[in-house]
Design a protein around this nucleic acid. Structure first.
Lengths: 176, 176
DNA sequence: TATAACATGTAAGGTGTTACATGATTGA
DNA sequence: TCAATCATGTAACACCTTACATGTTATA
């Protein structure tokens, strides 16, 4: 159950409304790390406020409530980030498919591997472009929910997947 | 909801009992791709059988039921593996932490990055050894729930994470 | 003979998703 | 004025985790 900590982390970057937070999960954050819909975000913000980890600092137009971290919230985030990494929960449908390629007949496996490499290549190009267009958002998760550290991580991930898929396809073809 | 397809994929490799399937999720499959407990696995096997995608082929000692894929099950697995990759669900606590490093003060961020690199290095060494000890389980998920394709994927993942963490730490130190 | 591993299940509670619902503001 | 975006929420259902519960077989 990492949603509260995800929210704490995002609020640590800057105060935000539930709507803004929910949108961040639609971007790269949700693509690589953690996803949540607005129907999870709003109740969770309420809980964080009730626990004193976040607070409403502003009520704007259209009923918008801006939340900010409290000192307790910042301390809890820090505690969670620094605590020893127990084996966390992993659910990744894409990686699951990669694992199950071994269960397919050769031709199908090759088709999936080729497609995987192509998709990684395409996503890589896209991400490189996004990064080039936003070179100055420092190490912050910016408008698009992307920061420089995270963007670099994404680039390397895609390269790894692409290269692995090519390697695996080559290996399968050589075996056959 | 990928659990049924995960089970279909595992059963495609070879028939297995619910107990064996549940154990596979404890291994590398659960570590990188998808995890599930036995309390999810047993009911799901029942559903797959009810849908005609799997069937009990053997009832052994200690009440063990061995399930195997039906033809329909194999077709459904193939359909799912080959269908265009809609953006699947991702939940990865480790990666979430990496994204949120940007929300920490410099010193804390460096501590997390250094620890991340060390852990990746350690896991990498361990995985390389496991792989070296099981060089012959071809492209199958073997005893340990690990196959050669998946093992290579894991190795590359760890290398990527380690190198990224080192790069990020260096960058932060240079900035400061 | 005791412990670990094998083997399956139920029940309660918590979490997450989908569908439904409402309304304000901005820009074309 | 119409559509898109902003902004929040509830309800029903599906799903997952934890704790509880039971019994068998192999091995030290």
């Amino acid at each position: 159950m990492s949603l509260p900590h995800a929210l704490l982390g995002l609020l640590a970057l800057r105060p935000a409304t539930g709507y803004e937070l929910a949108r961040m999960f639609d971007g790269d954050l949700g693509r690589y790390a953690w996803q949540a819909g607005h129907t999870s975000v709003y109740p969770e913000l309420g809980k964080l406020a009730a626990q004193g980890l976040a607070e409403v600092t502003e009520e704007g137009a259209r009923g918008a409530k801006t939340y900010a971290l409290t000192e307790d919230g910042r301390a809890e985030l820090r505690r969670w980030m620094l605590e020893p990494q127990r084996q966390g929960k992993v659910r990744n449908e894409g990686v699951l498919r990669l694992f199950l390629i071994a269960a397919l007949p050769r031709e199908d496996a090759l088709a999936v591997l080729d497609r995987t490499a192509e998709e990684a290549e395409r996503d890589l190009a896209e991400l490189r472009q996004v990064r080039a267009e936003h070179p100055d958002d420092a190490s912050m998760l910016g408008e698009q929910g992307i920061g420089q550290l995270a963007a670099e991580f994404g680039v390397r991930q895609y390269e790894t997947v692409r290269d692995w898929a090519r390697w695996a396809a080559e290996r399968l073809r050589a075996e056959g």
